[in-house]
C-alpha cells in the first residue's frame, strides 16, 4: 500500500515520510483493523498489543495541527480500533463476530433452539430454588460441553475444515446457561 498524500510505501497506518494517516475503512473488518489474522484462538495480550501499536499511530493528539480531514480520519480510526478491541477481546463476542459478522445476535429472531433444550433450561430454573447445588453442577457440565464444542468447531475451521454455521446455535445455548449460572442463589 502507498501513501495517498506523498505516494511513499507504507509500513504502518501512518506514513513514515509525510505523517499522513491511512484513510479508515468505511465498513471495517475488525481483525484487519488491528492488523490481525481472522482467528478465534488469539490471546488478549496480542489484541491489546495490536490495539496499542495502532492507537499510537492514529491518536488524534498527533493530528492536532493537521487538516480537518485528517483530524476526522484520526478520530474515526480511534473509534474503529476501540470497537475492534472491545469486540475481539471477549471470546463470546469474538465468536459471534467470526460466525456472523456481528458481535451479538439480533434483538429478536436468532437461531431457533430445540424445545428440548428450552425445556431443560426451564426445569433447571424451576429446580434452582430448591437444589441450587445440583443445578449448578448440571449447568457447569452444560457449559463445559458447549465450550468443548465451540473449541472443536473453531479449531477445525482454523485448519480449513468445516464451517462456522453451527456456531450461532451453540452461542445461543451458552447465553441461556450463563444467565442461569449467574442468577443461581449463592
Amino acid at each position: 500500500m502507498i501513501c495517498w498524500k506523498c505516494h511513499e510505501r507504507l509500513s504502518s497506518l501512518r506514513c513514515a515520510s509525510c505523517g499522513a494517516l491511512v484513510p479508515p475503512p468505511a465498513q471495517p473488518e475488525l481483525f484487519g483493523a488491528l492488523g490481525l489474522d481472522r482467528r478465534y484462538h488469539v490471546e488478549a495480550e496480542a489484541i491489546d498489543g495490536a490495539w496499542r501499536r495502532r492507537s499510537k499511530d492514529t491518536h488524534p493528539d498527533r493530528f492536532a495541527s493537521a487538516s480537518a480531514v485528517e483530524r476526522r480520519m484520526a478520530l474515526q480510526w480511534t473509534a474503529t480500533l476501540n470497537e475492534a478491541r472491545r469486540v475481539l477481546r471477549d471470546p463470546v463476542t469474538r465468536a459471534w463476530y467470526l460466525a456472523t459478522g456481528k458481535p451479538h445476535p439480533a434483538e429478536s429472531g436468532g437461531p431457533k433452539l430445540s424445545p428440548e433444550f428450552l425445556e431443560e433450561i426451564f426445569e433447571l430454573r424451576m429446580a434452582a430454588e430448591d437444589t441450587p447445588g445440583a443445578v449448578r453442577d448440571t449447568a457447569a457440565q452444560l457449559r463445559a460441553r458447549l465450550d468443548a464444542d465451540l473449541e472443536d468447531l473453531f479449531s477445525r475451521w482454523e485448519r480449513g475444515e468445516g464451517d462456522l454455521s453451527p456456531v450461532p446455535e451453540r452461542l445461543s445455548r451458552l447465553k441461556y446457561v450463563d444467565n442461569l449460572l449467574r442468577e443461581l442463589p449463592a
Partner: peptide
C-alpha cells in the same frame, strides 16, 4: 419460548 439475544425463558 426463549429469546436467544438475552437468554430469557
Amino acid at each position: 419460548v426463549g429469546a436467544p439475544a438475552c437468554g430469557d425463558v
